[in-house]
Design a protein around this nucleic acid. Structure first.
Lengths: 355, 355
DNA sequence: GCACGTGCTGAAATCGATTTCAATAACATT
DNA sequence: AATGTTATTGAAATCGATTTCAGCACGTGC
């Protein structure tokens, strides 16, 4: 057996195992009888290639089923056309709706989307942020309350592209899209006041977040407008999960400070309130009115159906993505950074009982 | 103003606009007084570098905050450590739970996850499959019924790595993870038979899919076991969405073939049945027993709560990913391709009325 | 003292596409 | 005929990391 035969066998074995025999741009060039540069020009629709060669090249590409290698393009172009999204839990509909909005807009601009589910762990989120200096992604969208404003700001200062959805951020230069917490919280609590409630509890989210501060502000403003005294004992906080809402509500009850309505920072925690009420024989809405936030799909199917504040999740994701991509393309360098989308109260059975 | 000052201003301006000044491996090498090769060896924990230089290099890396460029690594290594997932709609909890399982396992093996939401469009799915020959992803996971078995098989034959979740595939060589449709459908319908039902309708999914065939088989087997005649008029199909279930159920009612129970191919369509029943004053479970499939979170909160077949969504995603990665790493070349995970019936109020 | 192995290091090739720059051909202008 | 212009093309450099291969220094064995 000569060397040629032997080589052939090796090749064959490799082929059998791996068998994706990749065509490169030079192979296409060879077949079309032109140079790699010309093929590249055809691929990138450069105007400076004659119609005749263009046809030759396209034919070769077609015949060879040639696909340009992404890694090589990325290296050369210094962009990956990929956006990262960091979320605490992709399986929570609030997040998956936002992701959907992001994905759709990204797709429309030929961007791909890398999902970074942090499982609620800040360490994982910090690790995923490393995809920016890695240049694995061209930009990152944060839909998480965990990474601190300062951390985000540091990255932005270094020149990395970051956008934030559904969260208030202090720093001026950070691109964000959210709803008006003060306004809709005010509206929700005012609705309860109008229903005749005089003692209204509030179950907030993370107590030290800017959102929570803003929502408290809306809550207190509504009390003030209704000439209702503010009682700190009617305030508690949860973690945006069912159990957290259940526990916060239980604590409120144990304080022996009576109340007839509760405004929850999200629907998930309102579910916990429902469970606590069921266990204790408290009737919704007769004994206790409940209003949530998010308008999760589930709220319609609950009995009684849950009043809630619609959060335009899809729109927030989509809108931020649009602005982020515009920024990456160098347009709108000095464009607005803070976007606020309208949200509105949806009145349902859980707050329908008039006192 | 001298040139130095002027240059400084230019630098500053550039810094303000672009300012990610990337450090390359040669920069680190220069600082550490070694060659790029050595830095690379340190980064990749090669054993053939002395402890002394290793420390020098690590110090330089640390000081310069150096991050290896992903695109360059990808090009050189011919792998991107990225997995693609094609789903019809990320906002449907059935899919997002599967994605969660995939993401977690991928993360554990240092893989990233690219989300491809096809919006139920086959064209988008085909386009996303192009990420395989692009080499944008090392492998692709399909959680969609749309791409045909033959298409998948073509890609696999060419040597691309593809796995399928929650779907039956004919071809032997395609890696998949699913539940036993025949078995759990049989169990669900048998449960209805045991509750005393003699006329049981079935609202299936895509009528020409292998799953649907298997579920029909389980359904018919249960009828046979209960000595109940099979009536084709009690069969209809939906599209796995609420409206589809509503419409299929309405069609069934219009046929004047009476029935007292319905088995739905997923919970979403069962929701449609609930709505149709509410509109017509049909009581669940007294007049109509309902059993769904998936165990969506919402089923617990419905009134009456919905009996359903648990689908281990997270586990299916996680298990398939584990196997897919093993395959990509060249292990288990001849390993099993078809994996079946246990699912079980959850009896709730919607099927609790005994005839 | 010489041959040889071992441990460590660097120069250069490589991955595959894009882009700059120079060269050529074809044609127009004077 | 000499020069300039334009359209088209290809060779080579480039992106940034990895890896091969060769070389050097040092120690060991004879």
């Amino acid at each position: 057996m000569n060397l040629l035969e032997f080589t052939h066998i090796i090749r064959k074995n490799v082929t059998v195992r791996d068998h994706i025999v990749d065509k490169k741009i030079v192979d296409v060039a060879k077949r079309a009888g032109v140079s790699a540069a010309t093929v590249s020009r055809v691929l990138n629709e450069s105007s400076l290639v004659s119609e005749k060669t263009k046809i030759k090249v396209l034919k070769a590409i077609e015949e060879m089923d040639y696909h340009p290698n992404a890694a090589a393009k990325h290296l050369r172009s210094q962009r990956t056309m990929t956006l990262g999204i960091i979320v605490p839990d992709i399986n929570v509909s609030y997040f998956s709706e936002i992701i959907k909005g992001i994905e759709n807009k990204a797709y429309a601009h030929k961007y791909k989307v890398l999902i970074c589910d942090s499982d609620n762990q800040i360490e994982k989120e910090m690790e995923y942020l490393g995809l920016l200096p890695d240049k694995t992604v061209d930009g990152m969208i944060l839909v998480t309350p965990r990474v601190s404003d300062d951390t985000i700001n540091d990255y932005v200062q270094k020149g990395y592209v970051i956008g934030v959805v559904g969260r208030a951020v202090v720093h001026e230069n950070i691109l964000s899209c959210k709803t008006d917490n003060v306004k809709f919280s005010n509206e929700a609590v005012r609705h309860l006041v109008e229903q005749g409630h005089q003692q209204i509890a509030y179950i907030g989210g993370y107590s030290d977040s800017l959102e929570n501060y803003e929502r408290m502000e809306g809550y207190m403003k509504a009390l003030k407008e209704g000439k209702i005294p503010f009682l700190p004992t009617l305030i508690d906080n949860g973690d945006f999960e069912e159990t957290g809402g259940y526990q916060a509500f239980s604590r409120l009850l144990e304080r022996n400070q009576s109340f007839t309505a509760v405004y929850c920072a999200n629907d998930e925690m309102a579910l916990g309130v429902y469970r606590a009420c069921r266990e204790r024989g408290i009737r919704i809405p007769e004994d206790m009115a409940v209003v949530g936030v998010d308008n999760n799909r589930i709220t319609e199917y609950l009995l009684p159906s849950l009043s809630t504040v619609e959060q335009p999740k899809y729109e927030m994701g989509a809108h931020l993505t649009e602005k982020l991509i515009a920024q990456m393309n160098g347009n709108e360098q000095n464009a607005q950074k803070k976007y606020v989308i309208e949200s509105k109260l949806i009145k349902r059975e859980s707050s329908s009982f008039k006192r």
